[in-house]
Simulated assay, not measured.
Amino acid sequence: MKKIILLCFLISCVISLKAQDAKSVFINIPDSLSPLLTKVNREDFSDFLESKMKAVVKNKMEKMSEMKVLTKDYLFLQTTSQSSFQLKLLQLNDTTKIICVVNTACAPVCDSRVLFYTTNWKEIPSKDYIEMPGIERFFLAPDSTQVEAYNNARAPLNIYLLKADLSKDNNELTFTFTTPEYLDGSEAKALEPFLKKVLVYVWKDGRFVVKD
């Protein structure tokens, strides 16, 4: 009996180790988290890329989905013409990795959700790994002569939209403030002097923090 238990433990360890790359964790994502793609679809993406072919499959809506980037720890999937899925494997400690997922929808202005999972696809609290930027993070404080212009420029902003992008080259997460894209030309121009459009976070000691 002890030998059987030990064998099961070793098998589970081997499976876990094999799943520590972006390709494997994506293929094994639960269908509930990948409603448009079957497991066969997900397997086909990597097969096409490995064969130097364009990685395009027909999804469950009879539309085309394309995997544009796949590395050992990152992937970018254009799920539909207006939505995308990004995945990044992040080192939590010496032996454990977690998955960061960015789901983005553009209708037409882009907005993202940032989620975290174990490598077995159990969702874990995002607040443990990042403090999402509030809207004030993207504004530069006006000087005393600009206060009225600043307040007038901010007045049309009645929603908060944020596009997130994981880097394929490093462990950075970039946020772009996309709400101004809803504004007309004159409103956007008036707002521009007070905006910091992009904010970069870096993965450090098991957490995303604002880059210095």
Rank of each mutant, 00 (worst) to 15 (best):
S81R: 11
K68T: 14
L157I: 15
D44G: 01
T95P: 00
Q82M: 12
K39E: 13
N158Q: 15
L191E: 08
D165I: 10
N93M: 01
E123K: 13
N28A: 03
K3E: 15
N103T: 11
P180N: 09
L92W: 01
V102Q: 04
V102H: 08
F48P: 00
I15P: 03
S24P: 00
F194K: 07
G206I: 09
A188G: 07
K168D: 07
D47E: 12
M53L: 11
S65V: 05
K52L: 09
G206K: 08
T38L: 05
D47C: 03
I98E: 04
K39Q: 12
K68C: 07
D31L: 06
K189S: 13
V147T: 12
F177Q: 03
F138Y: 04
K189G: 04
A22M: 05
F85I: 01
P133H: 07
F26I: 00
E172W: 01
D128P: 03
C100Q: 04
N151F: 02
L37W: 02
S65N: 08
V14I: 15
E148R: 05
K196V: 08
F175N: 03
D184C: 06
V56Q: 12
L10K: 01
Q86D: 06
M64D: 15
Y117I: 04
N158V: 11
E131R: 09
F208Q: 02
P125R: 04
L70F: 09
D94P: 00
E50P: 02
L191F: 11
L70Y: 04
E172Y: 10
N158G: 12
L166W: 11
I29Q: 10
N152G: 00
F45K: 00
D184K: 15
D205A: 08
N59R: 06
I135E: 14
L77K: 04
S46R: 07
K163W: 00
R113I: 12
A188H: 07
S126C: 09
S83D: 08
R42G: 02
Y129A: 03
F175L: 03
I11R: 06
R207M: 04
D94F: 10
S51Y: 06
L75G: 02
D128G: 01
R154A: 10
K196T: 12
L89Q: 07
